[in-house]
Amino acid sequence: MTVNTSFDDGTLTLRFEGELDHHAARGAVRDVERAIEAHLPRACVLNLDGLSFMDSSGIAVILKAHRRVSELGATLLVTGARAQPLKVLAAAKLERLITIEHQKELYI
């Protein structure tokens, strides 16, 4: 599990790659927190298109990012989730709290 960071014009993009379970979550939280503190973004995008698996440990990682980003007055967008992580996000009803942009391919 890796988190790749890019920052452009106030927007911090964090791209997750691999399997996000409890084993990987602590490292992911640390990477996300470090990137947010380093850039203090106005907008933050969690790009999940490289995630081949996510369980409810990932929900906690996303909620933690959401809390910190909200404290900064910034917006959070979750994007690119494949079918399996998307189903976990839906089960947690995360779209009530966070904007989840669906992969375009799903609608073609």
Binding site: A25, R26, V29, D55, S56, S57, I59, A60, L63, K64, K87, V88, A91, A92
Partner: peptide
């Protein structure tokens, strides 16, 4: 605590 979401059993039940 905040490392968990409390959604594990809900996911097992619905999946």
């Amino acid at each position: 605590g905040e490392e968990r979401s409390g959604m594990g059993f809900t996911i097992m039940e619905s999946f």
